[in-house]
Simulated scan of single mutants.
Amino acid sequence: MDATIFHNPACGTSRNTLALIRHAGIEPTVIEYLRDPPLRGQLSAMIAAAGIGVRDALRRKGTPYDALGLDDPALTDDQLLDAMLAHPVLINRPFVVTDSGTRLCRPSEVVLEILPPLTQPFTKEDGEVVGATG
């Protein structure tokens, strides 16, 4: 299975998601999106494929979201995408794309929806065990 993760190594959710993918026996393509942001069409396609709206793909915490006035309901999806591309930290993470689908993996175990079933349980950084139970 092919997999790509739009990853931020400083984010625990992103680290757990990457580790879950590897635990499933898949070595994904890792794109550190803060250094190498997706193109507009790619970002728009990922959001649509994940079945969420552009606003749902916005990260608020630790970003210029408030300073940019992105809570204004009059802003269009195109305007929000422009902001995300100008400030990649606004892109919520991690997005994962596999042969089985695309997800915004918050929480990290959402990635299990688009991976083969785990044969062994996985322990997240905080000690929570997810995946196979036996």
Rank of each mutant, 00 (worst) to 15 (best):
residue 128 E to M: 12
residue 26 I to P: 01
residue 2 D to T: 13
residue 18 L to Q: 06
residue 100 S to G: 06
residue 97 V to D: 09
residue 45 A to I: 00
residue 66 D to F: 11
residue 104 L to Y: 02
residue 16 N to T: 10
residue 53 G to P: 03
residue 22 R to C: 04
residue 111 V to H: 00
residue 94 P to L: 13
residue 122 F to L: 09
residue 44 S to T: 14
residue 69 G to D: 05
residue 57 A to Y: 01
residue 38 P to Y: 08
residue 117 P to A: 13
residue 91 I to K: 01
residue 28 P to W: 12
residue 33 Y to L: 06
residue 19 A to C: 04
residue 64 P to K: 04
residue 33 Y to V: 11
residue 94 P to V: 13
residue 62 G to M: 10
residue 121 P to Q: 13
residue 33 Y to W: 09
residue 113 E to Q: 15
residue 4 T to P: 03
residue 124 K to P: 04
residue 9 P to H: 12
residue 76 T to D: 09
residue 63 T to E: 06
residue 106 R to A: 05
residue 47 I to D: 00
residue 80 L to Q: 10
residue 46 M to E: 03
residue 80 L to I: 13
residue 78 D to I: 07
residue 110 V to R: 15
residue 120 Q to A: 14
residue 64 P to Y: 04
residue 48 A to H: 10
residue 127 G to W: 07
residue 107 P to F: 08
residue 23 H to L: 10
residue 85 L to R: 09
residue 39 L to V: 06
residue 67 A to P: 07
residue 61 K to T: 10
residue 91 I to T: 02
residue 37 P to K: 01
residue 51 G to H: 03
residue 74 A to E: 13
residue 12 G to Q: 12
residue 102 T to W: 05
residue 3 A to Y: 01
residue 86 A to C: 06
residue 101 G to C: 07
residue 13 T to L: 11
residue 33 Y to T: 06
residue 8 N to T: 08
residue 66 D to A: 15
residue 36 D to G: 04
residue 37 P to F: 02
